[in-house]
Computed example of a mutant assay.
Amino acid sequence: MSAQLFSDSQILIAGVDEVGRGCLFGPVVAAAVVFEKAAISQLPEIGVKDSKQLSAKRREILATEIKNRAISYYISYASAREIDRLNILNASLLAMQRSVTKLSVTPELCLVDGNKKIPNITIPQETIIGGDRTSPIIAAASILAKVWRDKLIIRLATKYPHYDLENNKGYGTKKHRLALQEYAPCFHHRHSFKLK
């Protein structure tokens, strides 16, 4: 692929990121979002940055804005069972692969958070360590994935009230770990993780 193509402002670029790698509960969720290269610079102007630096309310507002502006996006996941079977890194890459392959358009380049390329896709990829902090399009993907995952965990919290999921979103807080000792893990816990 020529350098000319990558300098073209109209080429389609996908940002890809995942959330929930460090959780004890629930899936790892990945989002892929596609913009024309020229439009990526508009993302910081509307407030897009690393999802961890934004309030839940701000993330929800931005997620809607990103979806409205994006040429395509897709959110996918790998389940707790897949994480246990594959390990968290491979499950994260699987979730990313699912998101990219389900896009309604084929981007010319994927910008991927981290240092591992997504396996089994033929689209050119560039990995960026800390990409959710430095690349607006990866940050946009991180917002979509975070909002989707948080909503899922809040829904599951009503079914599994013991674990304080509404507050911890599946991360291993003290309250969550104490509940695991008292009630044992449920189906959605990652049994390959150190749960106690």
Rank of each mutant, 00 (worst) to 15 (best):
L62F: 04
I118W: 05
I46C: 04
K196Y: 14
L94E: 10
A30T: 09
D50T: 07
A56K: 12
N120I: 14
L180G: 04
H189E: 08
Y160E: 01
G20V: 03
M1N: 08
I75T: 01
K117D: 03
E60C: 04
G130A: 11
A145K: 07
S135R: 13
F6W: 11
P44C: 03
D150S: 01
H188Y: 15
G114L: 07
D50M: 01
S7Q: 10
L109D: 01
D17R: 11
L109W: 02
T101A: 10
S192V: 02
F193L: 08
I46N: 11
I75G: 00
L195T: 09
V147A: 08
I83F: 00
I11S: 02
L178M: 12
A78V: 07
R190H: 00
G130K: 12
L12G: 02
V33K: 07
S104K: 14
K169I: 12
S41I: 09
Y183D: 05
F193G: 01
F193S: 09
I143H: 05
V29Q: 03
A70V: 03
S192L: 05
N120Q: 15
A145D: 04
C23V: 11
E60H: 02
I118T: 09
W148Y: 14
G26K: 09
S2E: 08
I128L: 09
Q4I: 11
F35R: 10
R133H: 13
Q10E: 14
D17A: 14
I66Y: 10
K169D: 03
S135W: 05
I137C: 08
I75V: 12
K102A: 15
P119S: 12
